[in-house]
Simulated assay, not measured.
Amino acid sequence: MNRTVLRRVAAPSIAALALGLAVSACGAGNETGGSTSSDLSGTLKGAGSSAQESAMDAWRAGFQTDNPDVTVNYDPAGSGAGVEQFNAGAIDYAGSDSALDPEKGEDAAAKERCGADALQVPNYISPIALVYNLDGVDKLQLSAKTVAGIFDGTIKKWNDPAIAAENAGVTLPADAIAPVHRSDESGTTKNFTDYLEKASDGAWKFPADKVWPIKSGEAANGTSGVIAAVKAGKGSIGYADESQAGDLSQASIKVGDAYVAPSAEGAAKALEASPIDDSRPEGSLVIKVDRATTEAGAYPLMLTSYVFACPTYDKAKADLVKGFLSYVVSTKGQEEAAKNAGSAPLPASLQEKAAAIIDTISAK
């Protein structure tokens, strides 16, 4: 696969995209790519990303409505748990907020489970919000360098000069900062630490990882745990998928010379400004997010979630996995996720590539 910047790929016309998806998405009964096959039956088991939970709820509901004899299960146990269960053969598909990690042997383990390289395609794009609980402060601006200092513990008070310099005219209290991070192995953590590593001008000293790299702040399990901890703690700040931020305040991050609030549109702009990872095997569509982009309106503190599957299953399971995942990346599926989770639909060119990969799933 050639290294490609997604935004440079001309988006196909609506008619061409519809035709491409109709051809490539197995079980697609109309131009949206949503499966309307009524002859499918059985149960699918999935697990993984808690950030994808709201989107998965929409996908499961939509697919099961079209296919009433199918049950699709999903346990939002976290990206690490999803990868582990998938590689152990305990589930049929997995969701993760980061691609399989070759350095940790995740792709090799998946290949052993599947008997061939696992398929991985993006299915969910969402901003990661810096959520905070600070009385009297409803607007907050932070650069990646300042965020790094907050989460590594070198910036300890809300009225620290580094924060004050980015928030002229805002009355910042002298309260202690209480940073909250994920306690479980998390793709959201890997995306967050990747952003800190690449955008903080060297302030963050640790490599991107699903596991929080240092002893600092409070640890909370899952996206819901982080949200609950920030809500409960005065002076708290944490990171979580924006779709689950609720009524918590959200900081804007510095991009170039501007500060950008988290949004699905901003996350999509960051993705479109990023190249495809051409070191991956065929069947892997992985994006190398440009965390240091200065693209106007882009929000590079974001996650591109993936769904993993094997290229082959027994006949009945192959039809189910292909049908469900075709629905997930279809126009209809992406629209349903956007409505339910506030995510950004996959760009047309990326959607078409993902559908073509899923279409290769076959019976053993």
Results as ranks from 00 to 15, higher is better:
190 K>L: 14
83 V>Q: 00
319 D>R: 13
75 D>E: 09
72 V>E: 13
93 Y>F: 03
347 P>M: 10
46 G>N: 11
311 P>E: 03
285 L>S: 11
294 T>C: 08
266 G>N: 06
73 N>R: 14
109 A>Q: 10
274 S>Q: 06
324 F>M: 02
325 L>Y: 01
228 A>T: 08
46 G>I: 10
308 F>A: 04
4 T>V: 15
124 Y>F: 06
63 F>Y: 12
114 C>N: 08
139 K>I: 08
34 G>H: 10
281 P>I: 05
30 N>M: 09
136 G>C: 00
60 R>V: 15
333 G>V: 11
285 L>P: 10
285 L>K: 09
5 V>T: 11
39 D>H: 13
59 W>M: 01
275 P>E: 15
217 G>D: 03
164 A>M: 02
101 D>W: 00
50 S>D: 15
199 A>N: 10
183 S>F: 09
239 Y>V: 15
238 G>V: 08
322 K>G: 09
295 E>G: 05
341 A>I: 08
181 H>C: 11
24 S>A: 13
303 L>T: 14
249 S>R: 05
149 G>D: 00
44 L>C: 06
177 I>G: 01
43 T>A: 11
6 L>V: 02
131 V>H: 04
10 A>M: 14
232 A>C: 09
342 G>N: 02
242 E>G: 10
262 P>K: 02
167 N>W: 02
257 D>R: 13
271 L>T: 00
91 I>C: 01
155 I>C: 10
348 A>D: 13
154 T>R: 01
298 A>V: 05
228 A>V: 11
305 S>C: 03
343 S>V: 05
341 A>Q: 04
106 E>C: 05
85 Q>H: 06
75 D>W: 07
18 A>T: 07
88 A>I: 00
166 E>L: 01
113 R>S: 15
151 F>E: 09
181 H>R: 15
173 P>G: 12
224 S>R: 12
280 R>E: 14
146 T>E: 10
357 I>P: 07
229 A>F: 07
82 G>L: 02
338 A>F: 01
68 P>H: 01
245 A>D: 03
92 D>P: 05
341 A>F: 04
18 A>R: 03
178 A>T: 11
259 Y>A: 06
130 L>S: 05
320 L>A: 02
319 D>A: 11
174 A>E: 06
61 A>P: 12
345 P>Y: 05
125 I>L: 13
233 G>H: 02
21 L>H: 02
